[in-house]
Design a protein around this nucleic acid. Structure first.
Length: 307
DNA sequence: ATCTGTTCGCCTCTGTGTAA
DNA sequence: TTACACAGAGGCGAACAGAT
């Protein structure tokens, strides 16, 4: 069995079309047909069902494909590891985050220690993140939603409080704490459904016994504070949103019954080789978020006591 | 007529065994 | 270690069969 045959098989399995696969592989179609036949002969089983002019991957083919993908993945990782140990890589860390607000401080902090590192940041949905972690297109994801999938490890980095902001002059302005249920008749400004923070706060409201009345929803976290400021409604915000000055003048109220929190975590693929620099970044993240968690706790205590 | 997969015949290249 | 013969895989174009 040849490595080349495995590459050919993978392409045919993907496209389920001999001619298209041959074009993609830049070889003549009969060569590909023969290579697949030889592979099947070698394995002693058919990997494809032939119906008239179509070929379809059969159960044997699906089983074999899973193994072939794992083998080819291992080989790619082996090459990466060798390149790394021979200093051929450019120290790139590919990162996706659901909380971009922390990025400038986080990255500049790490670059002070490791100036040769190059970061690539991507904005992605959690399902896309999972897919890209698995394929090796991403090294890490920092997400506020646990990523649970085979071969993916998700480790909590920090837990932060979810708070309430209200327009100046709102009756909540004088409160430092409020029970969630007392907000049942309020109008909310919120992120669209599907965003982690929205799903989480909907769940908390449901636990408190009501469905929030959403007066405005959007997909731009940066404008939530401004909309609240204009009096469109109140809004749930994670503590980390207190970083920056867009909400600096707005009353901040802490929630109770239940206490609302969310956990930020780091996800990576356990099947992939982590370069020494990536491992160092992992350690840096743990320390960074430990410090940030403490800083946010103090900021929340200070801001809520101002009301 | 066109499209698609297989088979055939041929050439080239590579790996392996053997002799010098 | 080198040179040579051989087998087998990979490549191609041509031809074929069968479906649309």
């Amino acid at each position: 069995m040849e490595l080349l045959q495995l590459h050919y098989f993978k392409k045919v399995a993907e496209l389920e079309h001999m001619t298209h696969a041959a074009e993609a592989l830049n070889i003549a179609q009969p060569s590909l047909s023969k290579a697949i036949s030889r592979l099947e002969e070698d394995l002693g089983v058919k990997l494809f069902e032939r119906y008239n002019r179509q070929i379809k991957l059969n159960e044997n083919g699906r089983i074999f494909l899973r193994r072939v993908e794992a083998v080819l993945h291992e080989l790619r990782e082996a090459r990466r590891e060798l390149d790394e140990s021979n200093q051929k890589n450019d120290h790139t860390i590919r990162l996706s985050v659901t909380i971009p607000r922390v990025l400038p401080d986080l990255i500049s902090g790490f670059l002070k220690e490791e100036p040769q590192v190059h970061f690539k940041q991507y904005v992605q949905s959690v399902p896309k993140m999972t897919e890209k972690l698995r394929s090796g297109e991403l090294d890490f994801c920092i997400s506020s939603v646990p990523i649970q999938a085979e071969d993916i490890k998700w480790r909590p980095l920090m837990t932060e409080e979810i708070l309430l902001i209200a327009p100046p002059g709102h009756w909540l302005e004088t409160k430092s704490h409020i029970s969630l249920y007392e907000l049942r008749d309020e109008a909310f400004v919120s992120m669209n459904e599907g965003y982690g923070i929205r799903n989480l706060t909907d769940k908390y409201c449901q636990l408190a016994g009501f469905k929030p009345h959403i007066a405005f929803e959007g997909d731009e976290p940066g404008v939530i504070g401004e909309l609240v400021d204009k009096g469109l409604g109140i809004a749930f915000i994670p503590s980390v949103s207190l970083i920056g000055n867009k909400t600096a003048h707005l009353p901040v109220i802490r929630l109770q019954d239940p206490i609302c929190e969310r956990t930020i975590g780091l996800a990576w693929s356990t099947r992939r080789y982590l370069s020494p620099i990536a491992e160092k970044f992992q350690g840096f993240l743990s320390d960074y978020f430990k410090v940030l968690e403490e800083k946010l706790r103090k900021t929340v205590a200070h801001r809520s006591s101002e009301t």
